[in-house]
Design a protein around this nucleic acid. Structure first.
Lengths: 213, 213
DNA sequence: CAGTCAATCTTTACGTTGTCTAGATAGTTT
DNA sequence: AAACTATCTAGACAACGTAAAGATTGACTG
């Protein structure tokens, strides 16, 4: 068996290979199936190899999430800088990324599986925040509480919709909606309602519908 | 050792005891520490006992989440029916429940750990949806897309803020906020901005701040 | 160029988990 | 009283995270 092509003892770029393998598993089998051993199998190395590059499972997930934040911020930035950008196009890019990478997006906001103190992760997260602030013309250094309220409002609206959609919580609403309504229709209707606010007689949950039609 | 009080072979109310134990662990050690075996230890029974009452871990978590939804809906309903309820008090109750029961709230929206087909769970979830719809005067049977858009908008706003807060994503914002700003201040500022919408020149992320002050 | 060192990867091992199976125990019904 | 059923225990197994120790390879040093 001399001529047999055997894998070299040193992989050479195992770190990147493991990250690729991890994302493959994330897309194919979901976050619950993404284990250190599964990533090692996918990359064709021994089960203990990943720990040398990421420390522990949290480390691997955190690096994956940090890369996710970088790509996420890039997509939003592109949408915002497009000269033909319409109102809410940043928000649409936010949602589109989550729909294209559902498991990755959910991982990015799963504090219990991530190490928030990791520098690369902190940096990637901060960069996104700056983009969100900049898109509203809010100063990054000394914003007022009102400005922050508006920023958090926009962020919460999009983020909340995104997570409700990914968690399947909107299906029940689509069942009672007019025939043929899609989640995109729902999203656009939500954005439209956010633009034109109407106040009713006793809107204790915030938004009130005008009487009968 | 005749007089020694030994535990009876049959617990009598093990199901409820396990649910109590599970919630104790959830509050004390978080969702990741809530395992079937840990619940069994906490209740003082053998490690395989829980499976007879809940089938598997997903079953236990689903029953716990269903009970959470029931209490959650109750708290919101109480807030809405209070004759002295102010605008947004339903939303405040939503957030308050999540702050009081952070791990339970997160479990309730973790589709990957729950069995959405379980009848008791479906029912509890639907009940909440009805309360949310009713609070806006939206008909439960034939709502328009515009009405659903407003409902989803209010829900997403509150839900998004709640999850961002629980995930610790708002800490970075508080660091740059005026000295002494609390998350409650941020929440109220967000609600205020949702009431008085102002449209700017090119608000591609949705909300725009008026020029200089 | 020979020798040492450090980085990289494998092997082995241990404790914990979910879950399956078989068996023990205790109420309930007939 | 006897059969039946629900409830709980005991033991086992594979998969996981993680730690320790050894093997292999490349790089650096004299």
């Amino acid at each position: 068996m001399r001529g047999m092509k055997t894998a070299p003892y040193h992989h050479g770029a195992l770190r990147e290979a493991l990250l690729d393998a991890a994302e493959t598993i994330l897309k194919r089998d979901g976050l619950n199936a993404l284990t250190l051993r599964a990533a090692a199998r996918e990359a064709g190395v021994s089960h203990a190899a990943p720990s040398h590059h990421f420390g522990d499972l949290t480390g691997l997930l955190t690096d994956l999430a940090a890369d996710g934040f970088r790509r996420f911020a890039g997509r939003i930035k592109d949408a915002l800088e497009d000269p033909s950008a319409r109102r809410w196009d940043g928000a649409r890019a936010y949602l589109a990324f989550a729909i294209d990478n559902p498991a990755l997006f959910q991982l990015m906001f799963r504090a219990d599986r991530l190490d928030g103190s990791r520098p690369s992760f902190k940096e990637a997260r901060m960069h996104l925040l700056e983009i969100l602030a900049e898109s509203r013309g809010i100063p990054a250094d000394k914003p007022s509480v009102e400005q922050l309220g508006k920023m958090v409002g926009g962020w919460s609206l999009i983020h909340g919709y995104t997570l409700l959609l990914l968690d399947g919580r909107l299906k029940a609403l689509l069942n009672v909606a007019p025939e043929g309504t899609t989640t995109d229709d729902l999203f656009e209707a939500m954005l439209a309602s956010a633009d034109s606010q109407e106040i009713g007689p006793k809107p204790t949950m915030g938004v009130e519908v005008h009487g009968t039609n």
